[in-house]
Design a protein around this nucleic acid. Structure first.
Length: 544
RNA sequence: GCCCCCGUAGCUCAAUGGACAGAGCAACUGCCUUCUAAGCAGGAGGUUCUGGGUUCGAAUCCCGGCGGGGGCGCCA
């Protein structure tokens, strides 16, 4: 029986009499608005924040374990801005589910084998052995340059002479031979691989450190390659996979057919090439088994480019066929790819924007404006704070767009410090801190008191409301696996604080009781901003 | 041929069944002797691609178009 919302609201309003703690109720446009007594509500919110501190907003302990897999760059390339988006999204998601109460495992899965890797090893061995530059980043980036050069040598050119064709084919034969030797476990090639691979991994670890990411588990493609072959046999034995090798084919899984679907959805995919080598899908199946059985993962989240959506859906479907109940809680957090104004990034052509370069540029830009904009940043902390602010800008720019949207990376936008940006939120934190410093009140040592018993301004009420939304925002962002929800909230909270800051001068408040209440409110706001920033993997500097 | 994503202010994006569709950027008007102006306040800017449908209520859900992007058994 359909009823107008407005009528219901009026009915309910009529039935509610005077309730303790509620000042008045109104029914308007189909909404029932309940007004709490501000003094009670303000005290309740502020007390809760100050009592819980860093843990304000933390969810109750959950029984499930979540693994977030992110930061899966290939070795022998360099970490670019697209990898940065992946890593930031993954890390923030991990922080969100962890804070929401889940046991959380962070996993990295570098691609350390394949033709791309061999290509770099080939040119290094042939032309550059022993010439690697000093410095972790320099060496990692250098490998990426070698890849570009090797690709040019190995790619078919237009109008090439017969000599050039012969040369190119000879190079390619060398590369194929190296791949064969690697596969056969040739000691020389394996050593070459171990050394160059380690250079890439060193760089990756360095980058993760810059992003304040601490991985719990490292999976490597090379380590799941062999075990995944056994899985193929198991799937054949269970009649999930179809072995077409006797007919000169591959091993495939007819996913739709096995699931009993009549309409085409997951299609059919190959899990073992006719030559007996494994594929991406094969390795992902093997890895999933490890995640479920060795790490007891209940929810497995994959932070992977949205273009791999079908492949992951296929993997999840096969896991289900295989009998893993956790397959239902596998989740692909897809994200749109990051391109440049001049077009898609291409490691082959060397057209990439490296994360390290952007980070360096970020620091440079902050330092350039720091003296004019900053208050009193101590000289010995300028570099560090510039890094916090620069990275805050970059990180927030990656989080403030929904993950399924493509991004055209514009460094001027990513490193903007004005408006809806990381530094804007950091600045709200700094201002709160500045007031508290002025008041010489130690950060979180406030005593609860009933001191909000005065006519609160609308800015104070709005700030209290905004703070009180933090716990439910954590829960929503974690449940929906959406970092954007927290990113938006953090901006709104900062925005509310900035408005409050201008409208209400805390230190000039004459009434001591009111001043004390406002200091408590500022302290609660500072704590909440700090917690939100932490979840967003953005540092909160004391001054800026 | 099939599947997925997207289309909202000049630009970049929020809002995923609720109030008058909101921010930032760009442009405009004010505000630093006052807790940090990386800020605040204000005005302007909309046929939410389009046509139907469901609903008390639709940017949001359903169906059909148009436009853009991505994917579809031996790449990852």
């Amino acid at each position: 029986m359909p009823q107008k919302a407005q009528e219901i609201a009026e009915q309910v309003k009529g039935q509610l009499g005077g309730v303790e703690g509620i000042s008045h109720i109104e029914a308007v446009k189909g909404y029932l608005n309940v007004y709490f007594k501000t003094s009670d509500y303000a005290r309740r919110v502020v007390d809760e924040v100050l009592a819980n501190g860093n843990n304000f907003g933390r969810g109750a302990k959950k029984s499930e374990t979540v693994m977030v897999e992110y930061a899966q760059p290939n070795t022998h390339h360099s970490f670019h801005i697209g990898h940065a988006r992946n890593t930031i999204l993954g890390e923030v998601l991990a922080r969100l589910v962890e804070f929401a109460g889940f046991e959380t495992i962070r996993a990295s899965y570098p691609g350390d084998l394949g033709l791309g890797v061999i290509t770099v090893m080939w040119i290094y061995d042939k032309l550059y052995k022993g010439q690697e530059p000093e410095g972790v980043h320099e060496r990692g980036q250098w490998l990426a340059k070698l890849y570009v050069e090797a690709t040019a040598m190995l790619e078919k050119q237009e109008n090439e002479t017969p000599e050039q064709t012969a040369q190119r084919e000879a190079y390619d034969a060398e590369r194929r031979e190296m791949y064969r030797k690697w596969d056969a476990g040739d000691e020389y090639v394996r050593e070459l691989w171990r050394v160059t691979r380690e250079w890439s991994l060193e760089e990756l670890r360095e980058v993760l450190k810059m992003l304040d990411v601490k991985m719990d588990v490292w999976f490597y493609e090379s380590e799941v390659d062999e075990p995944s072959k056994a899985i193929v046999e198991e799937l054949i034995a269970k009649d999930i996979a179809t072995d077409e090798r006797p007919q000169g084919g591959a091993v495939i899984v007819k996913i739709d057919e096995k699931l009993g679907l009549t309409k085409e959805k997951y299609r059919t995919n190959v899990i073992l090439r006719r030559d007996g080598t494994t594929l991406y899908l094969t390795k992902d199946l093997a890895l999933a088994k490890v995640k479920f059985e060795q790490y007891h993962v209940d929810r497995s989240i994959y932070v992977v480019d949205v273009r791999q959506s079908l492949h992951l859906q296929q993997a999840f479907a096969i896991l289900k066929l295989w009998g893993f109940p956790q397959a239902e809680k596998c989740y692909h957090l897809g994200y749109g790819f990051v391109s440049l104004p001049e077009g898609a990034m291409s490691a082959r052509r060397g057209r990439v924007v490296l994360f390290k370069d952007v980070a360096d540029e970020a620091v440079k830009r902050v330092l350039a404006v720091e003296s004019e904009k900053s208050g009193d940043v101590p000289a010995n902390e300028r570099e560090k704070i510039a890094y916090q602010i620069g990275m805050g800008a970059l990180t927030y720019s990656m989080l403030s767009v929904d993950n399924n949207k493509d991004i055209v990376f514009d460094i001027n936008e990513a490193l903007s410090f004005d408006g809806r940006t990381g530094p804007y939120i950091q600045n709200a934190y700094v201002r709160a801190n500045s007031i508290l410093k002025k008041a010489q009140v130690p950060g979180s040592k406030f005593q609860a008191s009933g001191s909000f018993d005065y006519e609160l301004t609308k800015h104070e009420i709005e700030l209290i409301e905004q703070i009180s939304r933090f716990p439910q925002t954590v829960e929503q962002a974690a449940n929906e696996y959406r970092p954007l929800v927290m990113a938006s909230y953090a901006y709104e909270l900062a925005n509310t604080f900035h408005s409050f800051y201008h409208a209400v001068n805390v230190m000039q408040t004459e009434d001591e009781t009111i001043k004390n209440a406002r200091l408590q409110l500022v302290s609660a706001a500072k704590q909440t901003i700090e917690n939100a920033l932490r979840l967003l993997d953005i540092q909160a500097p004391d001054v800026m």
